[in-house]
Structure formats: C-alpha cells, structure tokens
C-alpha cells in the first residue's frame, strides 16, 4: 500500500520534471527576425534560448527585453544569417562575455562542482543510508540470536495465555 503510494508519487514527479523545461515562453517579439531557411531559423531559436543575457542575469536572450539582449539577438541573427555555425556564435559570445554568456557551462576546474556536485550528493546519501541500514540489520540479527532468560520466557508465556483468554471472551461477547 505504502509502496504503491511512493511509486505513484515518484512517477508523477518524474513526469512533471521531465516536461517542465519544454514550454519556454518568449517574452519578446521575435517577428523581426525572418529567415528563408527554416533550419537557420531553428538554429537561431536554439541559440537565443541557450545564450544568456549578461545584463539581466537569469534570462536567456530570447526572454529579455533589455537593450543589450536585443543587441545580442541582432548580433546572433546577423551571424546565423551569414552562415555561422552554432559553436561559432557561442564562441563569439563566450570570448566577450565569458562562460556566463552560455547556459551550458564548460567542464573546467572552476565549474566542476556544477557537474559533479549532484552526483556527489547522491553517492554520499546512498552511502550513508546503506551504512545505516546495514548497521540496523546487523543489530537486529544480534538481537534475534539473544536467548530470553528463564524469567523472561515465563513472562512471555503468561502474557500470551492472557492474550488468548482475552480474545476468547471477546469472540464470545461478539457472538
């Protein structure tokens, strides 16, 4: 029952999280950027979603109405129109605004925590939990081996008899 509940919760959460990044809303008007080639247009859209506005911190170029974001959108448009590859545009921005300008930071010593931090936390957590579980299991096994003393054994039997008697009277009453 409880397991079923957790499984259901887990899967619904997973579904929500998987779909979350899909519907990125565009706060700015992109009508001005016209392309003849749909592939170039798709590249342009990808880029302005992936490049970050240096002025507005946590908005993509596609999402910000800051003047600088518009300038950089124009620059991206110009470059994509002229046939630049995705990497060329990203390199252009990163060379001027640093790794900050791209929402996918490169793997470097200074960014390693972003890449390995989450995995590290999972490993630490799993280790801690399994260590604890193993410790509990070992303790339980030890307790299981323990023999009851004669007095405890006698008390256990007395309690069991009492319980059985109680049950007996309960069922009689119910009938």
């Amino acid at each position: 029952m409880i397991r079923k509940f957790f499984t259901a919760t887990f899967f619904s959460l997973a579904v929500v999280l998987l779909h979350a990044p899909v519907g990125v809303a565009h706060a700015v008007n992109l009508q001005a950027y016209q392309f003849d080639d749909p592939e170039r247009e798709a590249l342009f859209r990808d880029l302005i979603d992936e490049l970050r506005c240096p002025k507005c911190q946590n908005q993509a170029l596609s999402d910000s109405d800051a003047p600088l974001a518009k300038d950089l959108r124009d620059k991206t448009y110009e470059m994509v129109k002229a046939g630049a590859s995705k990497q060329e545009v990203i390199d252009f921005m990163v060379a001027r605004y640093g790794d900050f300008a791209h929402y996918q930071p490169p793997m470097k010593a200074s960014t390693s925590i972003l890449w390995w931090g989450p995995a590290l936390f999972v490993v630490l957590g799993v280790t801690a939990i399994s260590w604890r579980v193993m410790q509990l299991r070992r303790r339980r096994e030890l307790e299981g081996d323990e023999q009851l003393s004669a007095a405890e054994q006698a008390q256990l039997e007395r309690l069991q008899q009492e319980l059985a008697k109680q049950r007996g009277t309960d069922t009689e009453r119910a009938e």
Partner: peptide, 13 residues
Amino acid sequence: AQGDVAIEFGVYG
C-alpha cells in the same frame, strides 16, 4: 552609436 564596439569589449552596462 550602435554599441557594436561595446559588444566587442564585452560591455554589458
């Protein structure tokens, strides 16, 4: 006037 050179310098404000 256009801010093109500012982009070359990585100016953001």
